[in-house]
């Protein structure tokens, strides 16, 4: 105890000395230089900014500062959206598009993950397939649309195929990239415990690649939404993409903005769903 007290007294005396000597050199705190460059969460900033922008936009439109040829007023776009709800057409468009998105994306992702795993696990497959993936990935799928129409018809086939192909390639790349980055030591650990090949793939490789696969999903879902408009260029009566294209052809800019807003909402929803999936599947991460 006495030792502790003595220890404490030492610095206290030193401070007192300093204060006594103040007239010699002024004592001031060390300037703080550690601020900034840190992300703090600001929940409502985006929402606030969005509302402010829409209000400014509405004012601009109302006063004629923004020509109604250049942009419809947000209230007009909202009116177009309200019409969609009133007539119930929104559900027709949404269900047609969701059907294409869900089938195209899930089948594309399933095949993509499977092929990606095969590429990552079997060097013979990698040697054979990965050059094709690299060669075909950058081709805009819209360019292949005429071929898709011949192969899959102008019905749902070509639309789903456009999305499917658009989703497939980034998924393959994300998957085998993810597997390549799985900690080799973990695989060696599995082998050292005599785990079967299948167990190592199922319990070590796939969960290890999962973060990369999920961020691949995030990208491929956006690609799927981007391709929706292209997919619905041909022979689509209903669908958000078809609605946007029709609005463009009719120069109905209010409907155009309403359609684009629907795509944005779709994108936000999908992003949110994937975040939820990530949070649950990767709950082992910090």
């Amino acid at each position: 105890m006495s030792l502790d007290a003595a220890d404490l007294e030492q610095p206290r005396r030193a401070t007192a000395d300093l204060q006594q000597n103040r007239h010699v050199a002024a004592v001031k705190p060390v300037p703080f230089r550690g601020g900034g460059f840190v992300h703090t969460r600001h929940r409502f900033v985006a929402l606030f900014l969005f509302v402010v922008l829409v209000i400014l936009w509405e004012i601009g439109s109302q006063t004629g500062f923004i020509s109604n040829i250049a942009l419809p007023a947000p209230s007009e776009a909202a009116g177009a959206m309200a019409d969609l709800f009133e007539t119930g057409m929104i559900w027709k468009h949404l269900s047609a598009s969701l059907y294409r998105l869900v089938i195209g994306w899930s089948v594309g992702s399933l095949i993509g993950v499977t092929v990606g795993l095969a590429v990552a696990l079997f060097s013979i497959v990698r040697a054979g397939v990965s050059p094709f993936v690299s060669a075909l990935f950058p081709i805009p799928k819209i360019a292949l649309l005429p071929l898709f129409i011949i192969w899959f018809g102008i019905g749902e086939g070509s639309k789903v195929a456009t999305i499917l192909f658009g989703v497939f390639f980034p998924t393959v790349i994300a998957t085998y990239g993810g597997v390549d980055n799985v900690d080799r030591n973990l695989i060696r650990m599995g082998q050292s415990f005599g785990l079967s090949w299948l167990s190592i793939v199922r319990k070590i490789i796939i969960p290890g690649a999962l973060p990369a696969i999920l961020s691949g999903f995030r990208i491929s879902a956006s690609i799927a939404i981007i391709l929706l408009v292209a997919a619905e260029m041909i022979g689509a009566e209903f669908g958000i993409g078809a609605y946007i294209l029709m609005a463009g052809a009719l120069f109905a800019t209010d409907q155009l903005i309403a359609g684009v807003a629907m795509l944005s909402v779709l994108g936000l929803t999908v992003g949110w769903l994937i975040s939820r999936a990530e949070r649950w599947l990767l709950r082992w991460r910090a």
Binding site: M189, S192, S196, K203, P207, R285
Partner: peptide
């Protein structure tokens, strides 16, 4: 083996990491 870097699967709990080597 016991490895220098522990080689635990981060996606399995303590229990899960032990059970991994029993499951096969």
């Amino acid at each position: 083996y016991v490895f220098q870097d522990f080689a635990l699967l981060p996606w399995r709990t303590v229990e899960g990491n032990v059970s991994l080597v029993l499951e096969d």
